[in-house]
């Protein structure tokens, strides 16, 4: 696969993921908290390809999430959160790909970091919806839900990213 084609496939993957997250998974929300498919995508990218690649995917996915309706918050907040998540999870992965339990732990950590960074930027910008209390309520629930859907989503996305990986690296 040529490089341009790979970029197109990843972009399509991001758009489909965000669309699913916004229009389908909201029907399965637990008191408003929706599984962060975009974040799982970024974490899968980090597990397969490492920090730099995942940060790139995170920026793109975050920007789509920031701009796609019904987003009403200041654009760039999810982009920043997912760049940080992609980079940190990529670093934490180390050299070996983690076990199943390790993946679950990574997802929990990623969900915590991502949702927290998003909430913090909201606090800094004075978003009326964000208070420390509401963040404390939403963050653990988001972590739990993300972990719950991990076995359904992450293996699939990891497989996709493996196939997108250039094979002629050595």
């Amino acid at each position: 696969m040529s490089k341009a084609l790979r970029v197109i496939v990843v972009t399509a993957l991001i758009v489909v993921t965000v669309t699913l997250q916004i229009s389908i998974f909201t029907h399965f929300s637990i008191s408003g908290v929706v599984p962060d498919l975009a974040m799982l995508l970024v974490i899968a990218a980090a597990l397969v390809r490492g920090p730099d690649y995942a940060a790139g995917v995170g920026f793109a996915a975050g920007l789509v999430l920031d701009l796609a309706p019904p987003a009403d918050h200041t654009a760039g907040r999810w982009a920043l959160s997912l760049v940080v998540v992609g980079y940190l999870i990529g670093l934490a992965r180390g050299d070996a790909e983690p076990t199943a339990l390790g993946t679950v732990f990574m997802v929990a950590a990623g969900a915590f970091i991502g949702t927290s960074v998003f909430a913090l930027t909201g606090l800094v910008l004075g978003d009326p919806g964000v208070s420390v209390a509401s963040a404390l309520e939403v963050v653990p629930r988001a972590m739990l839900y993300d972990v719950l859907v991990t076995p359904l989503v992450v293996p699939l996305v990891v497989m996709l990213f493996r196939r997108l990986q250039p094979v002629d690296r050595w």
Binding site: I22, S23, S31, V33, V34, H73, S134
Partner: peptide, 15 residues
């Protein structure tokens, strides 16, 4: 209503 913002976004909007 075709889309709903997530609680993680801390704002209550729908498309």
């Amino acid at each position: 209503v075709v889309g709903m913002g997530a609680a993680q976004s801390f704002s209550r909007t729908v498309s």
